[in-house]
Design a protein around this nucleic acid. Structure first.
Lengths: 340, 340
DNA sequence: CTGAAAGCGCTTACAG
DNA sequence: CTGAAAGCGCTTACAG
């Protein structure tokens, strides 16, 4: 087909209408309500659309329809493979369903989280997925006030306003603890980066029940620098009563711990056992191979998306919580305590 | 301040105007052109804004202003730490400058890339950052036709339409090659996942110059399955004339290679040296420690953002290419060839 | 089946 | 300094 003149700007629905010799309403119907229009008109319009390379302006559509087809996702950062995988999975399913992903990072800082999620809301996201920071209340209030369908990921919150998807941290930790008890360990260090996090507290709680079995637990806080952390780690392991096993709360703490143990010349697992939450891709290429808690990132993303879609489609009713199971995989890094 | 009535929906500029007893123009000026308005009016409007929790609708602003303050970023996926770090850095600088990041993943598939980037364009992104697939032409044409400022990341393209940010792959590979030659290696295998990629071809080219020094190069293609790749790897290393060194083109190929070598009982570096492009965080906790090419992801993201901002601010002129340097870090995994 | 017109929530020349 | 009004690019009751 011949065009009257090439446009120096992106074509609008008016351009299509003019070229096709119909009204803008007819163009809109041809694209969105094929049944409301005659076959001939529809074909002619579609031809013009193709010829001009017309693509509806989503900003205008969003404004008019009152929904942007954008979903927001807020996570701490992407240098953690676990969060990266969550976002990765969400992008795939979102794209499949015709949504785009607006992504913000809060770096564990509540203030950043609030500001960035507010920006998401300003863009009128149709839905919101968030792995909350340690103090997400202000952010959550924002989401609630905006009445945007929201699903909280990974970290269960005592907040009945939101759907949540998590995995059973207590069960995973209990499995690790039983394993270590059975291997004769009576003093376990738990290395954490965010002590105040719900999931951390759940893990500590599960670990705490060990006390009843005569075991001791030391909480090892990850410091700002690797050197400072290493000193703490050394202290926790020192002496006759030192910890004989370390459980790391995530990949990065696990990495620092392993590097520290190597630097100190500690033999894993002969001297100290090491177990790690998350599933670093290097778990089975280090020696000894690492015992890990394989978090169900893909399944969680899938579940969260399903719930979010239901809400975006208008589903009402009380908030639901989905709790998946992580699978623990024991390898060589966790062994019997020396002399047991 | 007292409100006439709580709204069952998000407040608009009209609500603020009504509550403040001024026109919508005045509200808009109070927010965007403080100098065009009297102090008293401005204060009153701001008070109402705070009381109502009014936040301008970015969809409407974008439509009216003709720019969304959204930037699109298209990368292969996030399970590669290098791409994840690029996105991570971009999100930080974008957020700082008041932009939000719309992210799509193309999984190395040109068709997916085209579709997803088209979606980005439909949302009228103000700028576009892309790590292209192997065959990005259709996608690039789309970006060019949309006249959206675009910066190509990581993979330099013979396309004068776009600004580009990359690092010197030839130099990095040359450094690896010289190192290996110096250690006596005369047969080097290069393991790649995407042979057709520009960066891969540049690396191959640099490696090819070794031939002049009497060295041989074998291209090792990463298969769909790890088992198939392992068989290929074994074949490349077999026999008297087998390769004595493997250079892996990225972290994942490096991981498969290392796992393969371990499974075959090959001693690194006594039997075979291993060097890896990218900087896996596990490089120094495996034994032997890995020799790596540390790609300047953060610096690249920074440079790309600067260029994109300049273009979004209206800068014209021919496309520029920024080429950074990667730093090679040799460790224990690359050693002298046996018997040399 | 088709089109003129209103309106989504903003911004901005323009007039007063 | 302030406000009425047009218009960004769409969708959708409504009338014909």
């Amino acid at each position: 087909m011949k065009l009257s003149t090439p446009l120096p700007r992106r074509p609008t629905i008016h351009d299509v209408a003019r070229e096709s010799g119909v009204s803008v309403a007819t163009v809109s119907y041809a694209l969105n309500r094929p049944e409301r229009i005659s076959e001939g008109q529809r074909l002619r319009v579609l031809e013009t659309v193709a010829a001009l390379g017309y693509q509806p302006n989503r900003l205008a559509q969003g404004l008019r329809r009152g929904q942007s087809r954008l979903v927001g996702i807020s996570v701490p950062h992407l240098t953690n493979a676990y969060f990266a995988e969550l976002v990765n999975c969400i992008e795939s399913v979102a794209g499949r369903d015709g949504y785009e992903v607006l992504q913000v990072l809060h770096h564990h800082r509540p203030t950043v989280e609030r500001l960035r999620v507010a920006a998401l809301l300003d863009h009128r996201v149709s839905g919101l997925l968030m792995v909350p920071s340690e103090h997400p209340t202000a952010t959550l209030d924002l989401a609630a006030a905006a009445m945007v369908p929201t699903v909280v990921l990974d970290r269960p919150l005592p907040d009945a306003r939101f759907d949540q998807v998590t995995f059973d941290n207590r069960a995973a930790m209990t499995e690790l603890a039983r394993h270590l008890l059975g291997l004769g360990h009576r003093h376990i260090a738990f290395a954490v980066s965010h002590p105040g996090l719900v999931t951390t507290r759940q893990r500590i709680e599960a670990l705490g029940r060990l006390a009843a079995d005569g075991a001791r637990v030391t909480l090892l806080r990850q410091d700002a620098t690797e050197a400072a952390y290493r000193a703490r780690l050394a202290a926790a392991l020192a002496g006759k009563a030192g910890a004989t096993a370390v459980i790391a709360s995530n990949t990065q703490v696990g990495l620092w711990t392993l590097r520290g143990l190597q630097a100190m010349g500690v033999d894993v697992p002969a001297d100290v056992s090491l177990l790690v939450f998350d599933h670093p891709d290097w778990a089975d290429i280090v020696r000894p191979r690492l015992s890990v808690v394989d978090t169900p990132a893909a399944a969680m993303a899938e579940a969260a998306w399903t719930m979010l879609c239901a809400r975006m489609a208008g589903e009402t009713g009380p908030a639901r919580t989905v709790e998946l199971r992580a699978s623990v995989r024991f390898a060589e890094s966790s062994g019997a305590v020396r002399g047991s």
